[in-house]
Design a protein around this nucleic acid. Structure first.
Lengths: 240, 240
DNA sequence: GCGCACTACGTACGCTGTACGTAACTAGGA
DNA sequence: TCCTAGTTACGTACAGCGTACGTAGTGCGC
């Protein structure tokens, strides 16, 4: 009996190919790719063991030969798209490199809108996550600070990016599981908001929504927040 | 026929009591409280329509008289605990007030560990969320800045708090749905991490984990990040 | 070449959200 | 005042989920 993990197991520590039986029909990468394909097309909730198996053309339960739990499938997915992170020779300007890293992460999350929901520090040590972290640290090589501080910077940056993209995608991703359109939902919510504000109980909120700053440039908002966070760590181009 | 929402509907716009039929057995607050109780005790995944109904002592489908979709139950929950936010007379020192707000939010999230997962800008305009936002804006009354900037500050602050608490709770909340303990899982993951680092492919990661900064004080880390974010908006006690 | 670990996968269980139908109830209009 | 239409309550049912378990069949290590 294979004793399907009564004890914790990191999927990455498990060898792709066991010694004994018939050779596996897929590689882990195939499975991850199939799951990513489904999530990209139909949202994270479309990723079920049955769907992934169908996408691969195998029986549902066969997947459990590769992935002990669905949770591990998620971990495979996150690692797979983490592999899309490009790396480059550190430019010497760590601030510029960090901005580039952040933009790249944001692009990645827009390409795979389910990614923010799966972002977890627990997945932070998959093979591709390690490569990514090492690259970030390399970009910070010239900075005089402890690795602890550098890790905190990278963590905060990642967090802020995740947060912003989550907000950027919130209504769009939400409308995927709703029986009506995003615009309809927004209209109804804004109508309610208007009625509440008109009540006079929230004068400052009312003023805020009267301001009408014109169309919001999400890219600019993101860049501004990113800049502020970096400023917080290095106020005037000094070290951390 | 009641035509159970073929068109979007904000739950807050629906009256608690309809004119016609028998008087409802519960108020929305009862249902929210029951769901919160279950989530506090058994995690968010324990919140199913059947469980909530059982907690209330009514049939499962009766809930759908109060809540058109499960999603709306979540919205009720977030609003309910948002009501736990205390308010106070703005002190005049907006930075101190913002720190207090952030600490309060963090405490709230530790009391209701499922809250970060449900944090969504979509729920940002429930009654208690409006009260909360209005209070934040009131604390910023003396600051010379547009309401847009103020909203951005509040948003960024909330986001950073959410992010930090998510990380603080990640392993604990995760272990709730796992058949083994948090410590076991951590041990296995650290063992894997060690083996990878020992391979020599990630020299900086290796150095980072050699550093051993001693026990981490989560409160201090949180306060530091919070301070940096506030510094980013108001470098030296100036206005925004 | 034997045995056993492994792959493949069908069946089945308990759980989920919720569509639908029915019975009891009550407020508004005649 | 009675009638009726809209609401509440809730049992049943269905499609889908993760996954435990059992059974074949395959091919490496001894």
């Amino acid at each position: 009996m294979a004793d399907r993990a009564a004890v914790p197991e990191v999927i990455w520590a498990r060898p792709e190919r066991a010694g004994r039986g018939p050779k596996p029909a897929f590689r882990r990468a195939d499975i991850a790719a199939a799951a990513v394909r489904i999530a990209d097309g139909g949202g994270l909730d479309a990723v079920s063991m049955r769907h992934v198996a169908a996408e691969l053309g195998c029986g549902t339960m066969s997947l459990y030969n590769y992935v002990p739990r669905k949770e591990d499938l998620y971990e495979l997915m996150v690692d797979a798209v983490s592999g899309e992170h490009e790396e480059w020779e550190p430019s010497g300007d760590w601030r510029a490199d960090m901005v580039r890293v952040a933009h790249q992460t944001r692009t990645l999350m827009h390409r795979h809108p389910w990614l923010p929901r799966l972002m977890s520090p627990v997945y932070g040590f998959s093979p591709n996550a390690l490569r990514y972290l090492e690259h970030c640290l390399a970009c910070l090589d010239g900075v005089e600070a402890s690795y602890g501080t550098k890790m905190q910077l990278v963590g905060l940056l990642n967090g802020v990016v995740t947060m912003y993209v989550t907000n950027e995608l919130a209504t769009a991703e939400r409308s995927r599981s709703l029986p009506w359109s995003e615009e309809q939902e927004n209209a109804v919510r804004i109508a309610y908001l208007g009625s509440q504000i008109a009540g006079g109980a929230y004068p400052r909120m009312a003023a805020a929504f009267m301001e009408d700053p014109g169309p919001i440039d999400l890219d600019a908002v993101f860049d501004m927040a990113l800049g502020k966070v970096l400023d917080a760590f290095a106020p005037r181009g000094a070290g951390l």
